[in-house]
């Protein structure tokens, strides 16, 4: 068996990643999944979190909101609502979103959509966390 995986990450408006990779970590809804070549066929939903993939000794990071992944022995396909490479994340926007969500959570009343706010906060946090890795990664292309 080949010792690499083909990783495809497809966003609603484009194909974001198509690479041969050595290993992928994805944020499954029920916990993180590490996938190596030869993995059993699997289907899972992704939650807000970071996707990491190892390619020739370098780790690449992406942030993802909701997604869906299909794992085959030699291929991983991820459908992601929104996914961004670490180096493409707008840190300022993420910080603003985080501050906004926190402020709204603080003065939350009975009619606040807690879930939506928590979700927004979590997303902003993950984006910042992923963006922090951008400096350590060689440009993807």
């Amino acid at each position: 068996m080949d010792d690499t995986l083909q990783l495809d990450i497809v966003a609603p408006d484009k194909l974001l990643v198509r690479e041969q990779v050595d290993q992928v970590q994805i944020p499954g809804k029920r916990g993180e999944l590490g996938i190596l070549p030869g993995h059993a066929p699997l289907i899972t939903e992704l939650t807000i979190g970071e996707i990491r993939y190892m390619q020739g000794g370098t780790l690449h990071y992406l942030s993802v909101a909701w997604g869906f992944a299909e794992v085959l022995p030699n291929r991983v396909i991820i459908l992601a609502d929104t996914a961004e490479r670490a180096e493409e994340i707008d840190i300022k926007r993420a910080q603003e979103a985080k501050a906004r969500a926190e402020a709204e959570l603080k003065q939350a009343g009975a009619d606040t959509h807690y879930e939506a706010l928590q979700y927004a906060l979590r997303r902003a946090e993950v984006r910042l966390q992923v963006a922090a890795h951008a400096g350590h990664v060689a440009p993807a292309h």
Partner: peptide, 24 residues
């Protein structure tokens, strides 16, 4: 996609995935 005729492991029950995916 998804590849036909493969016996997948479902991390979540198919109904749950379906429920989350339909609004999309």
């Amino acid at each position: 996609f998804p590849a036909p005729g493969i016996d997948y492991i479902y991390e979540q029950p198919p109904a749950e995935i379906f429920r989350d995916m339909l609004p999309r």
